[in-house]
Design a protein around this nucleic acid. Structure first.
Lengths: 373, 373
DNA sequence: CGTGTTAACGTTAACGATAACTTTAAAGCC
DNA sequence: GGCTTTAAAGTTATCGTTAACGTTAACACG
């Protein structure tokens, strides 16, 4: 199937003109030219048939379609995109596919896009800034119709590059202050408020926070936490907000490490709100390792409501960020951008988070607000 | 940035020839033509500079590079691929990105490929046969250099289509009997053997199996299970192998449902080997719901060793399938195919699985073979 | 009969880029 | 000086496909 010197597909082959010598000798898929030669018509005729142009006689159409099927012809979408300026391709950049939040977003994005005939290509940056820049370059180079970015390490420079390139884009999860851009995400301050309010309601008084990185929704979640503590006249004790120095910010390991530091403090916290669920899982691990109990000694709540949260050693309370809806909204927004004749004003969609109570924070016998299977 | 009627970028613009009217009026990224016009040289010169051709004077090179940077030019990779027949694009088709196995494979695949300058595009079929066919069509249409397929619902027809199209491909996780193809996966019979042997060693005698779907590695795992039971002269009681009628075969729900049926049997099993970890998680849920204990009443072992297996309500024993290595090997194999001048003979890489013992199967006080944090 | 319409194609240029030659001018050599 | 050589470009054709327009023949109509 590799070095297949294109055989004449017709009885009397036209003398082919000088054939470009390809650098790598490789496969040669069937093209419209082959079919045209076979049938003794022009390529345009084939093209018209395939695009359901009404310019073609029923007979020709049938002959073409028959041959197309027979040869298992597939249009070269790259070539088509080159001419039409429309690839029906939408790119998604995420920091980590192993993080269920992003996998779920990808899933719902894809579902909506496919319905409209668009196709999602996913790219994971592994939380690496340089790699992410490369991947975005790649994606822009493929001339996508739009780009959806859920990045943990997007720089303003890169964003400017995208803007200049002219590809419309939607940010999700993390927004850029100052730059008006299309954005879909959850109200992160509300996340902080909800979580903190809940812990307070459960009777916690010394509430700590494992924060997210500087350039992340973690900043607003932190604000929500601080404001709520202030509102209830509860002090935030020294070092009760973890420093985020770890590189691998999303991980359980960083949660575990930060929690260990918290445990060494006096007085020890009786509740912890974590930036996300993996960190909460790590935190719970550290607490259990130290011989304490969750939630009796320390209540824990995360954010993201990852799908296996109910199945953990200590079923994890979490703030649901409506991942699926984020994906759907982002998809619809992206499609709107693609189909717009002129660039619409940037639109910001902010969803309200909701609380999901499970064992990790059910300290008192208050009935949980949300029921879980 | 959208309807930008391409402005003359030079002082004395050449009268542009009839401009193609694009159907959708959209952005217009910078092209080599723009730079060439600016600098008063031909596009070929630009192309040569960008490809480090030694045909260019130092001065011109500098001028070109400066302008390239200034305009933030990005080569159109689709156009380039059209001419060179080499896209540096490798596609991956997985049934479900939420399943950590596939996300992990994607991760390690991507890591290896990026090092070699190749770029991975991921596509998830959501376990839907029709959708998968569409996605593969899409990918083939984009003229990838190679395709890696981890499919749960690949048909022989689709495979033939890929073959005819000429794109080299590597199957992972699931192989096709009868068709010799490039393949990377784990020794699935050994998975069944390892799991079953372990349960027997733990003292189980009435061991059941939640099997995977018909066209999946589940078949070989079942065989391993059967053979091992036979080897130890243990009977497989009636209905001890779950029927797989559920659509959503990979899911916890199907595991939970099958387990409920097993629990109704008399005598009840004292050990269960599950096709994969999500099913095992579902099974454990059902067991606990019924008031029984894991592993005391029923030991459970899964396969895949998903990363959060140690953190589950009952930390899950599992057979490790060396996911990362599968990804790496598949990447290397794919690269070999791309770079081969002639199609090499299909190669089959089969890895040996290993046992990871955690609480869900530590029935007796035998020291676990593998230690886990 | 000439003009206009229409159905069913075909021609040409273009998309953005590269491969393989050609050209041009300066330099090198005897 | 006349010749070859070489450096540094430029020309042309091509990748697979589509948009815009051109052509042709048949037929209708007044």
């Amino acid at each position: 199937m590799f070095h297949r010197p294109k055989p004449p597909r017709t009885a009397a082959p036209f003398p082919r003109r000088r054939q470009l010598q390809r650098s790598t000798i490789r496969c040669m898929p069937v093209t419209m030219k082959d079919i045209a030669r076979d049938l003794g018509v022009s390529v345009v005729t084939i093209s018209k048939v395939l695009r359901n142009h009404d310019d073609i006689s029923e007979e020709t159409r049938k002959r073409v379609l028959a041959r197309v099927k027979e040869l298992n012809y597939r249009p070269n979408l790259a070539a088509r995109g080159l001419v039409t300026g429309h690839t029906y391709l939408i790119g998604l950049v995420v920091p980590d596919l192993l993080h269920p939040f992003f996998a779920e977003v990808a899933k719902s994005l894809s579902r909506v896009l496919l319905k409209k005939g668009y196709y999602l290509i996913i790219s994971s940056s592994e939380e690496d800034e340089e790699l992410e820049a490369r991947e975005i370059d790649q994606l822009l180079g493929r001339s996508l119709d739009a780009l959806v970015i859920a990045s943990s390490c997007l720089t303003r420079d890169i964003l400017r590059g995208i803007e200049e390139h002219g590809t419309p884009y939607v940010l999700i999860d993390r927004r850029f202050a100052g730059t008006p851009a299309n954005y879909v995400g959850v109200d992160d301050e509300a996340v902080g408020v909800l979580a903190t309010e809940h812990l307070i309601e459960m009777g916690c008084r010394r509430i700590a926070h494992l924060r997210g990185p500087e350039n992340s929704p973690g900043v607003e979640r932190l604000k929500g936490y601080r404001d709520t503590m202030a509102k209830h006249n509860l002090p935030i004790l020294p070092n009760y907000v973890s420093e985020q120095r770890t590189v691998d910010v999303q991980s359980r390991e960083s949660g575990a490490e930060s929690m260990r530091q918290l445990l060494a403090l006096k007085p020890r916290p009786d509740g912890v709100f974590c930036y996300n669920d993996p960190m909460a899982m790590g935190a719970i691990n550290s607490i259990l390792e130290s011989g304490l109990k969750v939630p009796e000694d320390i209540a824990v709540i995360g954010s993201g409501n990852i799908h296996y949260a109910p199945l953990l050693r200590v079923p994890l309370s979490s703030i649901d960020q409506h991942t699926e809806e984020i994906g759907e909204r982002a998809a619809r927004l992206a499609l709107a951008l693609v189909e717009a004749k002129t660039p619409p004003r940037p639109k910001s969609i902010v969803l309200q988070p909701s609380l999901v109570v499970r064992a990790s924070s059910s300290k008192t016998r208050i009935k949980p607000r949300t029921q879980e299977k």
